[in-house]
Amino acid sequence: MTEKQGVILYGPPASGKDTVTAALSELDSKYAQFARLKVGTGKTVGYRMGTAQQLRALEAAGDVVYANARYGNTYAIDRPGVDAAFAAGVPVVHLGQVDGIRALADGYPADWSLVLLWCPRETTAKRSLDRGDSDTAARLAAWDATSKDLNAHPGMVWDLTVDTTVSTPQDAARLIDQLMAQRAGTATA
C-alpha cells in the first residue's frame, strides 16, 4: 500500500495559494484545498467555520494538529478534518508558518510535498488591492512575518519552489502534479 500523499503550499498572502490550488483541482479533481477550521469573522470561502467551543473540544481530544491566530481569527488544522480530506483525495494545505509545516508533517504521518510559493511584497500589495481586500495593511504585515519566518529557518528544504510572478498558476499546478507523480513512483518502487 502506498502512503497517503498531500501537498503543503507555503507562502505569504497573495502568493497564489488559492489560485494554484484551483489550477491543481482543474488539472486533476483528486486535488482539493484543505478547509481549515476557522473561528472568527471575515472570509468564509475555503474554511469550515467553527466556534470557540468546537475548537476547545478538539483541543481536549488531542485532535488539533496545528492552530494559529492571524487577522483576529484562529485557524486550526484538525485531525478529523485531515482524515476526511485524505478520504476524498489529495489535500492541499495552505500555510504561512514554518511551525505549521513542521507540526503537520510531524503530527500527521503522510508523504507531504512541501511547495514554496513566493512573490515580492509589492506583488502582495498589488494583488491584495486588485482583489478588493479591506485589510491590505494586515496582509503586508503577514507578508513581513512570513519573510521573517522563512529567513529564521534557512535549513528548510522545499520539494519545489515557484515564483508566482513568473509562473502561471497552470504551470505551477503541472509542476506540483509532476512532483507528486515522481514521489508516488519513488514510494512504490
Rank of each mutant, 00 (worst) to 15 (best):
A52Q: 05
T165S: 07
G155H: 14
T164C: 07
V157W: 05
V39C: 02
V115A: 00
L140K: 03
S167G: 04
I176S: 10
A61E: 10
S134K: 07
L150S: 06
V162K: 04
R102C: 03
Q97Y: 14
T188F: 06
Q178M: 12
A137S: 12
V93Q: 01
L55K: 00
T21Q: 00
T186I: 14
A22V: 05
A145M: 01
D18A: 11
A84Y: 03
R127H: 03
A61H: 11
A125N: 06
D130I: 11
A110Q: 01
G16E: 13
R56E: 08
Q170F: 08
Y10A: 05
D18N: 10
D177N: 15
D149Q: 02
D106G: 14
L55W: 02
P91H: 12
V93E: 03
L27Y: 15
D111C: 15
D111R: 13
L24S: 04
Y47M: 06
G132W: 06
R48T: 14
D78E: 15
K43G: 08
V115C: 03
G81M: 11
G132E: 04
Q182C: 09
D130S: 13
H153K: 02
P80M: 12
T74Y: 07
A67L: 00
R48C: 04
A87N: 06
G89S: 11
Y75R: 01
G185T: 08
A84C: 02
Q170C: 07
V45G: 10
L9E: 09
A184D: 13
M49L: 12
A52L: 09
Y47H: 12
V45H: 12
V64Q: 06
G89V: 11
K148I: 00
D63M: 10
Y66K: 02
K30E: 13
I101H: 00
A22L: 01
R121P: 03
A69W: 10
D99L: 01
A172Y: 05
G72H: 00
L116E: 08
A187D: 15
D111Q: 07
G155E: 13
K126I: 15
W112R: 03
P154F: 15
D171R: 10
D135I: 09
D18V: 06
F34S: 08
T74P: 05
K43E: 15
Q97E: 14
K38D: 09
V7R: 09
Q178H: 12
P154E: 04
S15H: 09
D171V: 13
V90Y: 05
D106F: 07
A187Q: 11
A105C: 14
R131N: 08
K43R: 15
P91N: 14
D163A: 10
L114Q: 15
G185Q: 10
A85Y: 11
D78P: 01
A187I: 11
V93N: 01
T21V: 04
M180F: 08
L160Q: 12
A84H: 07
R56F: 05
D144Y: 01
I176D: 12
A61V: 09
A103H: 02
T161R: 15
A172V: 00
A181W: 10
T51V: 08
P120V: 01
T44F: 06
P109Q: 05
L117C: 02
R121Q: 06
S25T: 11
A152E: 10
A145G: 01
T124G: 04
R127F: 06
Q5A: 14
R102F: 00
Q170I: 08
R139C: 03
A105K: 06
T44P: 07
S15P: 00
S25Y: 06
L129G: 05
A87T: 10
V166Y: 03
F34C: 08
D149G: 03
